[in-house]
């Protein structure tokens, strides 16, 4: 994962994409939470399980 990715730009773009209204003043706290989430996600992303591994939740019709 690219650890240098521009969170400020990402958050602004995603807010627009998802239709979540966000002022300039509100953005820093979301960026902070996004940074925390990204740091934890990085731990998950660097793990490489076998390609044929099923994800955990299994849908049962």
């Amino acid at each position: 994962m690219n650890e240098e990715f521009d969170l400020d730009r990402y958050v602004a773009l995603m807010a627009e994409t998802l239709g979540i209204p966000m002022t300039e003043a509100e953005r820093p706290e979301v960026i902070l939470q996004m940074r925390r989430t990204a740091d934890l996600a990085a731990q998950v992303m660097e793990f490489e399980p076998p390609q044929d591994l099923e994800p955990a939740p299994v849908f049962k019709p």
């Binding site: 998802l18 939470q33 989430t37 998950v44 099923e54 994800p55 955990a56 939740p57």
Partner: peptide
């Protein structure tokens, strides 16, 4: 609130990676 917004914005790749790790870990 801001944790939920961050969750809404998280890429799908993070979620699927977490669910696949979860199976391995189990």
């Amino acid at each position: 609130r801001d944790r939920l917004i961050a969750g809404a914005m998280a890429p799908a790749a993070w979620y699927t990676a977490a669910q696949r790790f979860r199976r391995w870990y189990r």
